[in-house]
Each structure stands twice: as C-alpha cells, then as structure tokens.
Amino acid sequence: MGVEDSLARYNAAALKTSAEVIRCYSTSFGMASRILDRTTRSHIEAVYALVRVADEIVDGAAAGAGLSADVVEQLLDGLERDTETAMATGYSANLVVHAFAVTARTTGIGTELTRPFFASMRADITQSEHDQESFDRYVYGSAEVVGLMCLRAFLVGRRVTAEEDAVLVDGARHLGAAFQKINFLRDLAEDFSTLGRSYFPGVRPGNFTEADKLRLLADIDEDLRISAAALPGLPATPRRAVALAQGLFTELALRLRRTPADDLLRARIRVPNLVKFRIMAKAFTGRAVPELAAQERTA
C-alpha cells in the first residue's frame, strides 16, 4: 500500500470515528446530519465530534473519571494544541482531531473559529457566573462559531456574494446562539445543582421567575427569526438540514414556554422522538417553522 493510500484509509477511519460519536451522543444533531449528502455530512460529523470530545473533557467523562480541574485544563489545552497542529499539518494520532483537521483544511475553518471555541470551553473550568459581556463572549465561542464552521462546510465549492455571505453568517451565528440559549434554559436544574454554574446573567435558583423565562425566550425567538431569514440562501440539501434544526429548536422553545419557571429548576424538557420525526418530515420541504412560536404566543 502506498503512502497516499495509507492516508486515504486513515482519513476514512477518522471520519467513521466521528460519525460514531454523533450517533452515540445526539439524536437531534444526528437526525439533521442524515439529511445531508455524504461528503457534507462527514464534515458536520467531524465538527460535532471535536466539539463533543472537548465538552466531555470539561463536563462529562473526565469528571466521571475523577480528574481534577488542573488535569482537565491540561487535557483541554493539549486537545487545542493537537487540533491546531493537525490543522497545519494534516495529521493527528487522535482520530477525532484528524477528522476535524481534514474538514478544516477542506472547508477553510481556521484558528479564528477554533480559538474562541476552546476559550469558551476553558471558561467552564474557571468561571461559574457570567455578566452580559462574558455571556456574549461565551455564547459566541461555544455555539456561534460552531454554526460558522457548519456554514463553511455547506458552502464548499460554492460562490456567494458579499451580501449573501453576510446574511448567511448572521443566520449561522444566531442559530448557534439559539441552540445554546435553549440548552441553558432547559438545563437550568443541572447547571445549578450539579455543575454549580449560572450562565444567564443575574439568574439564580432562588430568583428565577416566569418573567425571566419569558424574557429569555423572547431573545431566543429573535435568534430563531434571524436564522430562519437566512435559510433561502443555503444550498438545497443543507437548507433542509438547517430547517430541521430550526424546527427542533422552535419546538423545544415552545415546550419551555409551556413549562412553569419553577418546573425548569427540577426537570429537563425534551422533544419526544415522534414529534422530532414529524418535524423532520416537514423539514424536507426546505423551510423552517418559526410560525409556531407566533402561534404559541397568541394561543
């Protein structure tokens, strides 16, 4: 086997590894990615896998293994160094990092996106509360840049005007922000009780009210509105996948709206799989479902 054949086989193994990560961890993200063509789906899976591994270092498996905060930070720093080296050289001994590097080098993802992401992950180790400035910075790094990475994958080989690109970038950032804020809202109980964190500025277990919930949901609605406006500019297949994500986030926001604020401090709200499949069927039309939020507010 030649050197080029060896690299091609290694690339394929790395991409399969990333695909397995998304299947193990995310029903919703995995569902949306399955709508994509094989090449684009591989890129999205590679992005998701790296994000998931970083998150597991900060909040999941590493803590389960009993690692100290200092060791967790060292592991995260090592993952970032390995990622940047792989992006520069095209190789990593870590299959997930290697898959991401293949995607980054193909789609144009650079350190202008990965460094803010790792900075936000690092904040989870050192920071338990946020003011508005640090919250905005955290959401950008942890979620908006992931939306921008996905957008790079969607647009490989396509030319867009500066005006079109501006709309798509705005939409990708706002969809990522909506996703993160919705997760913060539905994970209030775990963040407060298990992780000892408060992401939303000024929101604490003892002072979270219905008015707070509705204020946060209004901000999420605006994020979803802006991201929906960018849908027509996406290529057809990615447009269906993003429409599905849009629909899932909108449905989850509706369920959060129906749930009393006190209950959000005790339970995690989910979208049943049957409802997810209904939204998936609708997404195949290539349109989002932002009208549901308006219907709910007037119901």
Rank of each mutant, 00 (worst) to 15 (best):
A101H: 02
V96L: 09
Q127D: 06
D77W: 00
E133L: 11
A218H: 10
E84M: 13
G64F: 08
P290N: 10
R225V: 04
L188T: 02
L148F: 08
D191G: 11
V96K: 01
L15G: 01
R255N: 08
L148E: 14
G30T: 03
T209Y: 15
M149Y: 01
A153Y: 03
T106P: 00
T106F: 00
T111Q: 13
G78L: 06
E45N: 15
L231Y: 10
V271H: 07
R9D: 14
S92I: 06
F117V: 02
A63Y: 10
T298Q: 15
L67Y: 12
E144A: 14
Y138H: 13
K282A: 11
E20Q: 13
A261D: 00
E251Q: 13
N273Q: 08
F100W: 03
A32I: 08
Q127H: 08
E20K: 08
R115H: 08
A65Y: 12
A104N: 01
R255D: 14
L155V: 07
T114I: 09
V47A: 02
L188E: 00
I109W: 03
F135G: 09
G157N: 05
E4P: 01
F117A: 06
H174S: 12
R258K: 10
A63W: 06
F118D: 01
F179N: 15
L256A: 00
D223P: 11
G60V: 12
S198I: 01
M149S: 07
L224T: 12
L252F: 06
R41C: 12
D131Q: 04
E4G: 02
I125K: 00
V72D: 02
V139W: 09
D223G: 13
E133Y: 11
R159P: 00
T250A: 15
S42R: 14
R287C: 04
L224W: 14
E84V: 05
Q74R: 07
R240D: 01
V169Q: 15
M1W: 11
V51W: 02
G286A: 08
A123F: 04
A93N: 06
S18H: 07
S134L: 06
R34E: 10
Q74W: 01
R278C: 01
F277E: 03
A143T: 14
K276A: 01
F184C: 11
A283P: 10
R158V: 05
R137S: 15
L244H: 07
E129Q: 11
P205W: 09
K16E: 14
A19T: 02
R9E: 15
N207G: 15
I182R: 09
L79M: 06
P290G: 06
R158N: 08
R215D: 14
A294C: 13
G176C: 13
A49D: 04
A65C: 14
T40F: 05
R239G: 09
M149H: 04
L79G: 00
A229Y: 02
S134P: 06
D223W: 15
A243G: 11
N183D: 15
M280S: 03
S28H: 03
V51Y: 05
L148G: 07
P201Y: 07
V102P: 00
A230W: 08
E251D: 15
E190Q: 10
A123N: 07
G108T: 09
N11P: 04
I109A: 06
T298S: 14
D131P: 05
